[in-house]
Each structure stands twice: as C-alpha cells, then as structure tokens.
C-alpha cells in the first residue's frame, strides 16, 4: 500500500498538500472542517504530521523489537507491564495505518528483525 510522501502541509482553506522532496507540491485532499472551531488548529496539525508520525512510530517499534531491547524491557518488572501496553497499542496503530500485519515486538527473531510482512 502506498501513500503520498510527507511532509504534508495544510493551507487555511483546508487543502492538504504534499511537499515531498524532489518534486512539485501535490494536492492530497481538501478538507471541510466540522465540529468545534477551537479544535481545528489542533486537528490540522495532527493531519499534517500523520505521515511523519507513522514513519517515526514504525522506526521506534523496530527499535523496541530489537531482541536486546525487548529482552531488557521484559526483564524489568517495573516497566514491563506499561511498556507492553504501549507497544501493543503501537502495534495496533501501525497495523491500522499500514494495513499490514505487524509482528509482536516480543516475537521478532533476532536473525530477521524485519518489522512488517505482507498481510
């Protein structure tokens, strides 16, 4: 599954543009805002940052799935329960965003530390 590369920038008129390096800006969508006026600036930032946010989460998940990191997390009872919640949640969000199965961070083999596989 492909998506329009970031960074995305939104104009005040609701047009969402991709300003990807190496090309001319590309219109991604035109948004009609609804709901509370006070939420719009925040909503705009969330939408603008979504591509970079997902890619950053992807990389963080890969880091957490490193055997030595996963092992360190699991061996510390002070952080393991919370970390498990956070990482399981991150996994669900990545699956939702990419449409691909994301392996459990505790079960990625050391010799093949690849995050995603085609669903």
């Amino acid at each position: 599954m492909k998506y329009t590369p970031g960074p995305w920038r939104m104009k005040n008129n609701g047009e969402l543009w991709s300003h990807a390096r190496g090309g001319t800006p590309q219109l991604v969508a035109s948004v009609s805002w609804m709901g509370d006026q006070e939420d719009r600036a925040g909503n705009m930032r969330v939408v603008e940052a979504s591509v970079e946010l997902t890619e950053a989460l992807d990389e963080l998940y890969l880091l957490a799935a490193l055997p030595q990191v996963a092992q360190a997390i699991q061996s510390d009872p002070a952080i393991e329960p919370k970390a498990r919640l956070i990482l399981d949640n991150a996994r669900e969000i990545l699956q939702k965003c990419t449409g691909r199965r994301t392996p459990d961070w505790r079960k990625i083999p050391a010799h093949a530390n690849r995050l995603t596989h085609n669903a």
């Binding site: 599954m1 492909k2 590369p5 991709s18 990807a20 390096r21 190496g22 090309g23």
Partner: peptide, 21 residues
C-alpha cells in the same frame, strides 16, 4: 532525501510500497 516519491518499477519487489532516494 533526494526523491521522496521514488518509484520502484513493477514488478520489482517493494514496488508496492513507498520508497525514497
């Protein structure tokens, strides 16, 4: 990043996912 929207040609593996140079 040089080309954020780099197209790997079909049917090359990874052509269905985003790539950048």
């Amino acid at each position: 990043v040089e080309q954020a929207k780099y197209k790997i040609p079909v049917p090359t593996p990874f052509s269905q996912h985003n790539a950048r140079t």
